[in-house]
Amino acid sequence: MEENKEIDLLLKIERVEAPLYLRARVEARIANEEQQRIPMRTVWSIAASVTVLLVLNVWAVSNSNRSNRTDYSAETSLATEMNISVSNQLYHD
């Protein structure tokens, strides 16, 4: 059969030995990649620093919101007594 005859060509392909220099190239690439790899310790310490920084930021923002005064009645009444405008509008009646 034609198909089998053609496929038989694949069976005739000879095994080839990997070139000897390939080993040196593989070893060089592994050494190169190991050199470039960032140690896990560094990765974890950066991640921990970023987390601490984020937590501190959240804490600082929420704390400053809590301590912000919203009651300005004393200042408003003093300004009214002194006839000072309490409006921020520059042009008003």
């Binding site: 053609e6 060509l9 694949l10 005739k12 392909i13 000879e14 095994r15 080839v16």
Partner: peptide, 15 residues
């Protein structure tokens, strides 16, 4: 393909 036998090279390439 260094494993393809010379006499079958063209047919192997085609396949």
């Amino acid at each position: 393909h260094p494993g393809a036998i010379l006499e079958n090279k063209e047919a192997t390439e085609q396949l």
